[in-house]
Each structure stands twice: as C-alpha cells, then as structure tokens.
C-alpha cells in the first residue's frame, strides 16, 4: 500500500532559535502534514513554529562532496567567534 507521501518536519523550539529537523511524518497533503507534525513532535509544547517540506523536495549534499563543500572553510578560522581572543574583563560576548 503505497500510501501517504513523506514530509520532513522542522520545529522552532523557542523564539529566536532556528528551525531544527526533528523527523518525518506521512500525510496526504501539506495541511495534514502540519497537523500530524504538531500532534507528533510537539506533544509536550516543544515548539512555537513548524515547517513541513515534502521529503522529495529536499536535495542533500553527498558525503563524497564533503571535501569540496566544507573543507575550504576549515582554514577560515576568523569566521569562528573563538578566533577573537578578548580580555576576560570584557565578559561574555
């Protein structure tokens, strides 16, 4: 029984945070996917916002491309906050 298509679910757990992938649901349409996602992934009020995306619409990077896609930024340490040493007196930033 090839039934309802698969949707990937992303939940924003708190205001100010990014949506995070939490899993998937089956649903006949986007509206139902939204409701199913709400019923499944936010039973303990874990979310303030939900995205659902048809799984077939997602293009994922292949692990073989890891070196091309991600390695070049490995040496760009200035992109990371820990690169900037600040005196302790400045406090948490």
């Amino acid at each position: 029984m090839a039934d309802w298509p698969l949707y990937e679910v992303f939940v924003r757990s708190k205001h100010g945070l990014n949506h995070k992938h939490v899993g998937s649901v089956h649903a006949a349409d986007a509206e139902m996917a939204m409701e199913n996602a709400r019923d499944l992934y936010t039973r303990r009020s874990e979310g303030v916002s939900i995205w659902v995306v048809p799984s077939s619409a997602i293009t994922a990077s292949s692990p073989d491309e890891k070196e091309i896609l991600f390695d070049p930024s490995d040496d760009k340490v200035y992109r990371h906050a820990s690169f900037y040493k600040l005196p302790d007196e400045v406090g948490h930033m």
Partner: peptide, 27 residues
C-alpha cells in the same frame, strides 16, 4: 498510550532514512 504511538512513529521515521518503506514493513 499516545506516547507509544508517537514512539512507533519516531522509529519508523528513523527506519525510513535507511531506504525502507514503512507500509511495506508494516505489511
């Protein structure tokens, strides 16, 4: 009981990332 249904769904969802089809496995 509702949690148990939910846990079943979390697990089927993890299983489907391996290319398995939920409906086929349930069959």
């Amino acid at each position: 009981i509702q949690d148990e249904a939910g846990h079943g769904l979390y697990l089927y969802s993890a299983m489907e990332t391996l290319g398995a089809d939920r409906d086929e496995e349930i069959d």
